Every structure is written in structure tokens, then in C-alpha cells.
Amino acid sequence: MKKNAILVFCLVIVGVVVWFTFHNQGSDEGTASKTVRKQNPVVHNISEEPVTGNGTLGDAIHNTQIFLNGVLEQGQVKTIDFEKNKENLNTVIGYEQGAIKFANKVNASIEIKKELQKDLVETKTAIANQSYDSLYKVGQSLIKLDKSYNI
């Protein structure tokens, strides 16, 4: 009788383990089918440009303006040493060219493309003439474009 009780007890334990194993598998399948995956929304800037990847045209305009503003020491001086800042000024030109390429890539408005192109030409002219005032005007133009595009 004692052997039968132990055998029944073992069978009950095995039965409970099997029941829980199959019951939990069914629950996992049911839960998995009800799982909702959250999708991140596509965020756009004010110009309806998706804010994804390595930046936006707004970033390119803003970064160009910020870098030029740094070279010009935020308008706190009346001139700069053009020879000493040659590398920085070449970087400004590179930023402007990059912004123009980005504007073409994202099919920006004709006004933005023209303004960026005009600023690039004026930057090159200002550097060639070593004109701080002309560079400052380009910086102001970029600030205006930055505000109109990003704010």
C-alpha cells in the first residue's frame, strides 16, 4: 500500500509538472500574438523634413552659421587674421558646400538653394578680399536663414 501511495504521489507530481509545462506554453503563444510593437513616429522639423539619419538640412544650415559665427568671434571683434584662420575659413566653405549638397539631396526650395549658393559666393569673395564686414554679413544671412528654416 505504501508503494502504491508513493507511485500515485509521483504520478501526480509528473502530471502537475506536465500540465504546467503545456499550460505555460499556450500562454506564451497567446501573449506573443497579442504583443503590440511600438513604432517610433517619424519626427519632422518645421520644414516637414524628417529628422532621421545623419542630420537634416536645418542642421547643416545651423552648423554652418554656428561655425562661421565662431570664426568671427560672434561679432565681438572688428577683424580677424585671415591667414591665421585660413583652415577655419576653408571649413566654413566646406560646411556651406555641404549644406548646398544637402539642399539638393532633400529637394529644398529654390529660395533656400539660391540663398545658400549666394552665401557661398559671398564667403569666397570676402575671404579673397579679406573683408571681415562681408563675412559678418554672410553670417547674418545664415542666421536669418537658420531662423526661418528651423524656428
Score class of each variant (00 low, 15 high):
50 P>A: 04
95 Y>L: 12
76 Q>R: 14
70 G>Q: 09
123 T>K: 01
43 V>F: 09
13 I>F: 14
69 N>L: 09
54 N>D: 15
40 N>H: 11
43 V>T: 10
151 I>W: 12
64 T>E: 01
26 G>P: 00
1 M>A: 15
121 V>N: 08
132 Y>D: 05
7 L>H: 15
121 V>G: 01
17 V>N: 01
2 K>D: 14
78 K>A: 04
39 Q>L: 08
59 D>F: 07
51 V>M: 10
102 F>H: 14
53 G>P: 09
94 G>L: 00
57 L>K: 00
148 S>W: 05
22 F>C: 07
85 N>K: 07
30 G>Y: 02
18 V>P: 02
124 K>H: 05
49 E>W: 00
2 K>Q: 09
55 G>F: 04
50 P>T: 02
46 I>S: 09
72 L>E: 14
47 S>D: 09
27 S>V: 03
106 V>Y: 04
127 I>R: 00
90 N>Q: 08
141 S>I: 11
129 N>H: 12
5 A>G: 11
18 V>D: 13
54 N>F: 04
57 L>I: 04
99 A>Y: 03
58 G>P: 04
79 T>R: 06
31 T>K: 11
68 L>G: 01
75 G>S: 12
10 C>P: 00
8 V>N: 08
139 G>L: 00
135 L>S: 00
79 T>D: 15
31 T>D: 07
60 A>V: 03
